[in-house]
Nucleic acid binder design. Structure first.
Lengths: 154, 154
DNA sequence: TATTGTTATACTCTATAACTATA
DNA sequence: TATAGTTATAGAGTATAACAATA
């Protein structure tokens, strides 16, 4: 076994701690996002469309690491709620671009202001260093999640 | 890119990055835990019983931050599979203690050895510092998840 | 009356499979 | 034939509500 500089971090420990923590956070995020009338996954898609502009289903699915059918279901709900609308792709008749409607933009705004209050408060309790740790960890978690995912292998 | 060490971390950024990363990891964990025949939540309960010994439903539910009914459902599946068994509580007739069966212990052992291979490999790719960051983040995420949760301390 | 657990029911999230339309 | 999207179906995970037994 290799020596850690200060604290030896067992891989098993890291896995266990991280998994449990992540499980609890996701449950909290889901339970807190309900009251808006928006579910968690809808919120995430809305946020992505807001920051990245119009996107097609397949790209949204890849971005969230879900299957296109799953993303299609989420988009269909958002469309029913009038928060996103579809637009034809300029060059490829198969693809469909999704973008926020005015209601979608408004829903985003209201959500940011009020509904994520607990999360903002919770984040505010951390020191700058702690927040930096969390952001760094987010990048690592992403890498972790993608490890062994062979997209190019047919 | 700016000087990462000195750039103030926006709370919004931290929230967004973390939420997305956590969502992806949980999907990966769930999809990878299926092949054993054990689901992710069953695995977590098994792990906890293995490390903490016999526990009652309500305590397990509190530990995982789910409702007792949800935990009851998970325990019922594990019991059907013969991986946990129930035992009467010595002093309180309402409570039921759950503990691992021999099969449950064996399932744990096999799982640790083989099934979480991708996760072990994925963790192994990180440097000691990176693993330390992840473990530190796990603690922070836990705190984050519990913020504003009014538990029994009232 | 409060707590533990059970039963019944429903919703969210995601997946796989089979299909249509377009490239 | 390959890709984008849709429809149908299913299972995991969890919640709320109503209930029974025990404290």
């Amino acid at each position: 076994m290799r020596d850690a500089a200060n604290t030896p971090i067992s891989i098993e420990t890291a896995i266990t701690e991280l998994s449990l923590a992540v499980g609890q956070l996701i449950r909290r995020l889901r339970s807190e996002s309900n009251p808006d009338g928006l579910t968690w996954s809808q919120t995430v898609v809305l946020a992505r469309l807001a920051s990245a502009g119009p996107m097609v289903t397949a790209d949204l699915a890849r971005a969230e690491a879900v299957k296109p059918q799953s993303m299609g279901a989420t988009l269909a709900e958002l469309e029913l709620d009038g928060l996103v609308k579809r637009r034809a792709h300029p060059t490829d008749g198969r693809q469909v671009l999704f973008e926020l409607t005015a209601d979608g933009v408004e829903a985003r705004r209201k959500r940011s202001a009020a509904k994520q209050k607990w999360l903002l408060d919770a984040m505010a309790q951390f020191t700058v260093d702690e927040r930096r740790t969390l952001v760094a960890a987010a990048g690592l978690i992403r890498r972790l999640s993608e490890t062994g995912t062979h997209r190019s292998e047919s």
